[in-house]
């Protein structure tokens, strides 16, 4: 189990998990992160959102909440930015009309923690490209939409601790022999789809010049193009691709993950108390089996539930 996970995780995530044990594995000279906080917040503002002491997956230590959480409680609803078409993670069930999935379960846990009711969610369906702006403009409180934590995004928003580790894979037609994007490059003249405004599309364009990168507004838009024969493959997180394979028996997900995508819940940068509150909720879910139950329900296709990602705390002051 541990072995499979580390191959999937990649270097960054491995370092992140180690950070909990070793204080900070990437920076031998660093003091324990918690003690650094006061110094760093004065001397180093926003520019150092990611450094040796702040791995991208390092979040703020859990706390019971504050002004932001109180405001949400007063409002009576938690405004959340989600996907309505990413099967398994966040999608609208056409039969019930309800939005459901693994991401949504995490949000329901937060709703339960604030209101004692999992249904106090006010959904706002957003595209991948809208994830940052709805937080920056405070249009929603949380974004849980297959949202990879990375340093660039930490510059404008904040993330919860990692709650799921996905890895980028490729989806091809059932009869294709390609096992990776390199194989597709070898075939030549292959079009590969990824959604706009994602790390996936950036990586595709930068790392694989041998294939033609095609973008769509959403991941599901890619599936439409794939089913119409307008693209030959889709690349994306295994969590998302599993949802596609479930909708299309002529598609298959191939190969090993070639990146680690740590998912976090996005929060506005200036609402650190909410980040801390969410982290408390996530830790609870990871510990009491709620997390594993959700994983089995939605992501069972990827295998039995692994151990939940380890939360890494000790981020220095708010940028």
């Amino acid at each position: 189990m541990t072995t499979t996970r580390s191959t999937r995780l990649g270097l960054g995530a491995v370092l992140a998990s180690l950070a909990l044990v070793a204080g900070c594995a990437g920076a031998p000279a660093a003091e324990p992160a918690g003690q650094q906080q006061a110094v760093a917040s004065v001397a180093l503002p926003a520019a150092t959102v990611c450094d040796d002491a702040n791995e991208s997956t390092t979040s703020y230590a859990p706390a019971p909440g504050g002004a932001t959480v109180d405001a949400i409680r007063t409002r009576g609803a938690l405004r959340v930015g989600v996907s309505a078409d990413t099967l398994l993670m966040g999608s609208r069930n056409p039969l019930s009309g309800q939005i459901e999935g693994f991401d949504i379960d995490m949000l329901r846990a937060v709703s339960t923690a604030i209101f004692g009711d999992p249904n106090r969610l006010q959904f706002r369906v957003i595209t991948s490209a809208q994830r940052l702006e709805v937080l920056e403009n405070h249009e929603v409180d949380l974004v849980a939409r297959t949202f990879t934590i990375n340093c660039e995004r930490w510059e404008t928003i904040a993330f919860s601790a990692e709650y799921l580790t996905a890895g980028q894979k490729v989806l091809v037609t059932r009869d294709s022999e390609a096992q990776s994007i390199e194989d597709l490059e070898g075939l030549g003249d292959q079009r590969v789809c990824a959604p706009e405004g994602t790390t996936t599309l950036e990586r595709l364009e930068e790392t694989y010049p041998g294939v033609e990168a095609v973008s769509a507004p959403t991941h599901t838009g890619c599936l439409v193009l794939f089913q119409q024969g307008k693209v030959d493959a889709i690349t994306g997180d295994d969590t998302i691709l599993a949802g596609f394979a479930a909708q299309d028996p002529y598609a298959k997900v191939v190969g090993e993950a070639f990146s680690a995508e740590p998912y976090g819940i996005g929060v506005a940068a200036d609402q650190v108390d909410l980040v801390r509150f969410v982290n408390g909720v996530l830790d609870q879910a990871k510990a009491d089996g709620t997390w594993a139950a959700s994983y089995d329900r939605w992501l069972g296709a990827l295998g039995t539930a692994p151990a939940p990602p380890v939360s890494v705390y000790g981020r220095v002051g708010s940028p």
Partner: peptide, 20 residues
């Protein structure tokens, strides 16, 4: 029709077809 067929099977890709 494709949107309908997907919708009928409970596949969210139906919404994307309707959009298109």
């Amino acid at each position: 029709e494709q949107a309908r067929a997907n919708n009928r099977q409970g596949f969210p890709v139906g919404a994307a077809y309707l959009d298109q």
